[in-house]
């Protein structure tokens, strides 16, 4: 691991703004620490790593799953947690982002977990904040803790992150989860394929080191991991795809298409799932194949690891 520490430098300290810029050593360190927390959590031992520290969850977009996961992670480390929900409040508009940062500085917050509908919002806050910023999803840019938890899950099942064939399927264009996973998996030496209708493939994505498929069955051929993405229903309105039923027919994961992947291929989904749109319930609920529930458990451990790593310098025991 680099001497500069974990995450990205911006403003006065280090943050986790994305997977982009992390080297394999940094990623491995986060995953190893997450493994440690998985065992500690199962033993139920209370921790006081973040005792007396304040963690603020600032969610400009609704998210029960990610917010709860960060809240749980912070609580297990002994932090004081404040949840700031912004819908309908004075901070619901992007114009006040800098003001929000100034307010949080005045409150002496140690860690800010932020989700925002604008790409780059976490980086903008990081430039102004005294706290460590964790990007919990910014627009269509990145969702780094999701990629880390996916990586822990994969590593626990496959024993490695190298030389795997990972198929990421669905709305890649609008997916921050896809971007973070592409960056993480290619950095760690796996082969990544993206599978989507041409209207949902971002321009120039091949330059990120992935192979692009528009035929799902061909793209799934021999895959070790099948990572499904959520297709937001509002994307239908802008006519990226004509209908849900057509999408499910050609890009929904069902047993037939999954048969093209390796027999022991894992099925993953960042949640929440649209059953019958991008994934068939029979596949999603197949405990032999689907690790979707396990991803949730890994999420808490990974977030504990990230909180621990990012506060080490401030806690003086790096």
């Amino acid at each position: 691991m680099a001497q500069t520490g974990f995450g990205q430098a911006a403003g006065r300290r280090r943050h986790l703004l994305g997977i982009g810029g992390l080297d394999p050593g940094q990623i491995r360190a986060a995953l190893d620490l997450a493994e440690t927390y998985i065992s500690l959590n199962r033993k139920g031992g209370p921790r006081d790593v973040l005792r007396g520290r304040t963690l603020v969850n600032l969610f400009f977009e609704n998210s029960t799953r990610t917010r709860t996961s960060f809240e749980l992670a912070g609580k297990r480390l002994g932090a004081d947690i404040v949840n700031m929900s912004t819908s309908g409040s004075s901070v619901s508009k992007g114009e006040t982002l800098i003001d929000t940062a100034m307010t949080l500085n005045a409150m002496h917050v140690d860690v800010l977990v932020v989700r925002h509908d604008q790409s780059g919002a976490a980086a903008l806050l990081a430039q102004k904040l005294d706290a460590a910023v964790i990007n919990a999803g910014d627009g269509t840019h990145e969702h780094p803790t999701q990629a880390l938890l996916d990586a822990v899950t994969i590593r626990r099942h496959k024993g490695t992150l190298e030389n795997l064939t990972v198929a990421i399927c669905g709305d890649v264009l609008h997916s921050r989860v896809a971007r973070s996973n592409i960056l993480l998996l290619t950095t760690m030496g796996s082969r990544v394929r993206v599978i989507a209708p041409p209207t949902l493939i971002p321009t120039g994505v091949a330059a990120l080191g992935v192979e692009v498929f528009t035929d799902m069955e061909r793209g799934l051929e021999g895959a070790d991991i099948v990572m499904m993405l959520r297709l937001q229903r509002e994307r239908m309105g802008r006519a990226f795809v004509p209908s849900a039923r057509e999408y499910f027919r050609f890009y929904g994961l069902d047993a037939g298409k999954l048969a093209r992947a390796k027999p022991d291929a894992l099925v993953m989904h960042p949640g929440p799932m649209n059953r019958g749109v991008e994934i068939d319930s029979a596949v999603a609920d197949d405990l032999q194949r689907s690790v979707i529930q396990e991803q949730v458990e890994m999420g808490v451990a990974v977030r504990m690891a990230v909180l621990d790593l990012l506060t080490r310098e401030a806690r003086g025991n790096a």
Binding site: G20, S119, G120, D138, G139, T140, H141, E142, R176, R179, P202, T203, G204, V205, A207, L208
Partner: peptide, 15 residues
């Protein structure tokens, strides 16, 4: 501008 960099930054592009 639409392209690799816009894709990396997660920004909508103008072709």
């Amino acid at each position: 501008n639409e392209g690799e960099l816009a894709t990396r930054l997660g920004l909508p592009g103008i072709p």
